[in-house]
Design a binder for these strands. Structure first.
Lengths: 208, 208
DNA sequence: TCATCCAGTTAACAACTGTTCTCCGGAATT
DNA sequence: AATTCCGGAGAACAGTTGTTAACTGGATGA
């Protein structure tokens, strides 16, 4: 299935990726709505007009960045939330997985946290759409758990939302703790673990 | 105590407030890091150079906006979270209060949601500082509840954080629902209520 | 081999930005 | 009544921005 594309399209994708990478780097200390087209091309080393060969606008590039940051994350969610193993082990594993992902993709995490409520509408909508997909996936996974017997659809949805938001909050906290000490990171992990545990307990007694 | 200030300082505060209001309006469709000094003064109707009489920079104005948006909110928190009345009534009242606040101060809520993780460091830090104050207030209020007997300091903190984050998430959802139907707003209220109820249940069985 | 395609370049455009310095006129102080 | 103070205006600065048009040269396909 892997179609070997000509040296022409290969070069094009290469500079396209360079534009995305440069933009992501510049966005560590500003928001998308203040990112300039020339700023990005200058960082890559191409002419400003070359930008238009790949994106219609900065907002367009932003949407592409959203897909890059969240698109490849879906398989991870399924395997993590699924009801294998014990509860405590699952929680520990989930927190570890978040910490590792933040450590390996800090710029992506920062970008999503920043632009989720940012000033560029199409990007905001792209983030919301991806998060809605996540929520739905978590919901169907949660529904499989025997503990969810007798739960209404609305109850499942509110729990899934709670989990997704919790994941984002924890990611952001890990991100802030990245530049600090190892103890700080452990404290974040501890708090996140306890919060997930409390949610677990609430979940267990929901139908009382 | 109300010191009647001269007509000179009164005028100054008036234009200062006009700058803040204009900035807040412009920030509904962009982020602070892309807000221009001239843009703000133009909206107010004063010369660009007049800006420097009130703020050192746009970031400085942003910090002032954070204080305006969150500073006057502390008394509300205390009275809402405090352990008077029954649990369900308290939850309903809290959600109502959030909904009303978002409806009356949408621009402020949007600003905080946007700049909490935004591209301007001093503003980000100002938001974090105010939220830390909130968390601490919620924590001391939660600690007063008889249900919190035997809770460690770390447990109290993680619960307070959970409440504060939940408040922010709910605010943001209400904000999005403002431009939509009344049913949408009721659905947000319903989800938020259920989530708070689940947290309550988890809290009750925490020490099992 | 030759014509076509197309990613990237060059040059130029009007419009905009933050910041400095100098000045004005009315309020505040003596 | 005379003087100081100070919020705001005006003009000018070098530098930046997004977008257009026409062009170049190497890959592509007939």
């Amino acid at each position: 299935m892997s179609h070997t594309l000509g040296i022409r399209q290969a070069q094009k994708q290469k500079t396209r990726q360079a534009l995305l990478d440069a933009a992501l780097g510049l966005l560590e200390e500003q928001s998308l709505s203040s990112l300039g087209l020339r700023e990005v091309t200058r960082a890559v080393g191409v002419a400003p007009t070359a930008f238009y060969r790949h994106f219609r606008s900065i907002a367009d590039l932003g949407v592409a960045l959203v897909d890059e940051a969240l698109g490849s994350l879906h398989p991870m969610v399924r395997t993590t939330v699924s009801a294998t193993r014990g509860i405590d082990e699952r929680i520990t594993r989930a927190v570890e997985l978040i910490e590792r992902h933040v450590a390996t993709h800090p710029a992506h995490v920062r970008f999503i946290a920043r632009e989720r409520h940012g000033g560029v509408q199409p990007v905001r909508e792209a983030v919301q759409a991806q998060l809605a997909r996540f929520t739905d996936e978590v919901k169907t996974e949660v529904a499989k758990d025997p503990e969810a017997a007798g739960w209404s659809d609305e109850d499942l949805l509110m729990l899934a939302q709670l989990y997704v938001d919790q994941m984002l909050i924890t990611s952001s906290l890990f991100l802030d703790a990245l530049e600090e000490s190892q103890e700080e990171r452990e404290r974040v992990a501890q708090v996140a673990t306890r919060q997930l545990r409390l949610i677990s307990i609430g979940r267990r007694h929901w139908l009382d």
